[in-house]
Computed example of a mutant assay.
Amino acid sequence: MHEITLGFVSDTRATAQSVRYRERLRVPWWWWLPGLGLAALLAFEINLGIEAVPMWAAFAVLGLVAAATLTWLGRVDVRVVEGSASGVAELWVGDAHLPVSVIARSAEVPKTAKSAALGRQLDPAAFVVHRPWIGPMVLVVLDDADDPTPYWLISSRRPELLLAALTA
């Protein structure tokens, strides 16, 4: 196994943490083409219907709305960090986090098994961060008597690297 070190990040509590793995669940680059194209089409329609609006205003406003929406959709970070003071590794998905020590086991859920994992087999108490534009997922089963969450199901473009960082 190899450890993935990408630098240092500062937590909201202002403690430096060593990053083992980090991934942002952004939308694919090609989604920007239809997103901005749709915004331009709507702006053109608005300009045809309302002559009092300056030509550039509808394009600027709807272009910013499209860019903000696509950026917002890809805002979630998945990272495994090791605290410099405590030395305890944690899995962070967005604002949610858990110590790696409470993970009983973890596995990759391939793209072909994703619909089954998110369908009838899904436990309603599970923590799920699903992005439909990302194929594989990672299943993290918890062993914590104080936590009612049985497992986490997380989208990841590189599940093998995430699993390696969790077990390192």
Rank of each mutant, 00 (worst) to 15 (best):
G7D: 00
R20G: 02
R20L: 02
L25A: 00
L25E: 00
R26G: 04
W31A: 00
W32Q: 02
L33E: 03
P34A: 04
L38H: 05
L38T: 13
L41D: 09
L42V: 14
F44G: 07
I46R: 05
N47G: 11
N47I: 00
L48K: 11
E51L: 12
M55D: 14
A57K: 10
A60V: 14
A60M: 06
G63P: 10
A68P: 06
A68I: 00
T69D: 12
T69L: 11
L70S: 10
L73I: 12
G74E: 02
G83L: 05
S84R: 09
S86E: 12
W92C: 01
G94W: 13
H97Q: 09
V100S: 07
S106Y: 04
S106G: 13
E108K: 15
V109N: 13
P110W: 00
S115Y: 03
L122K: 14
D123G: 09
P124Y: 01
F127A: 03
V128S: 01
W133N: 02
I134Q: 00
M137L: 13
L139Q: 07
V140A: 03
V141F: 01
V141Q: 07
L142K: 01
D144I: 03
D146T: 14
P148D: 07
W152E: 09
L153D: 07
S156L: 04
R158W: 00
L161A: 15
L162D: 08
A165R: 07
L166I: 07
